[in-house]
Amino acid sequence: MKKLLLALIAAASPAAADVNTDAVMASRPPAHLSDFGFFDDLATMTPATGVTPYEIASALFTDYAEKQRWIYTPAPAPYSTEGALDFPVGAALIKLFHYGDNLIETRVLLHQEAGWKAYAYLWNADHTDADLKLAGADLAVDTPHGTISYHVPNVNQCKGCHVDNAGNFSPIGPKIRNLNVADQLQRFVTLGVLAEAPADAPAMPNYMDETVPLPERAAAYLDINCAHCHAPGHPADTSGLYLNWEEDRPVHRGIGKHPTAAGRGSGNLDYDVVPGDPDASIIVYRISSVDPGVMMPELGRTIVHAEGVQLIRDYIASLSE
């Protein structure tokens, strides 16, 4: 009944005419990206009506992959500063990972009756379509940073970052503070993506923006790269290290905090963050590593994010001892 209603709403809304809403809501994911109808033309990534491109202020590092994002929603999400925006059932988030002309994968997050579902579609060699890949893959990819073994996550690994301890699956990037870029919120309201855009909406900076104070850049970097696990109620809260934007207790941000279950991830160091001493800080050791038993994040990168490491080093060096 509800589905029918949604279908009627979708059909009635001219903004959503072209997307295959049945594919978005199907319990079994379609075999090809084209089946969703998110794009009028996959060759040019021309979005279908109702599919809106968007940007975020600070992005997760994924082996220097370039990313493009689109959202499709049957109704505007209510304004909220808590967590990711609550897009209604029927919504879809679409993210393309590529290196220049080399298209790697497009990941979709689909909001179904039973919750969000995540699937990865791998682009074929001719870039005519992308195919569903449930089990993940390791791909040799030539990038400006050398040939890497790019890892496409399997569906469980998707959950590894997107599911909280209560079992709720949610998007990570589209939080108000991370979407508050230039006039994007206002544009979202106009396009029916967001219900309202208050002038005082919070904003998180782009961590690469050097005009922003170092502590805020570092906090933004740690939030978007770490806090999907390192936050209360999320997979790595067992460590007591919380790197979400809101956390302000020094020990939980790692300052003078002993590791809990780091094993050799400690790198023979005593504290997560030692103010003034990046080389003595476990957090720097772990984000500088590509050893799977040491590296952080555990998933999503196979090479070091040199600029990110430098940012965190500079930040820790700037903290008074």
Partner: peptide, 12 residues
């Protein structure tokens, strides 16, 4: 020969 993942088997 492990190249990825923080553990051998993760059960959630």
């Amino acid at each position: 020969n492990q190249t990825g993942g923080g553990e051998g088997l993760l059960v959630t």
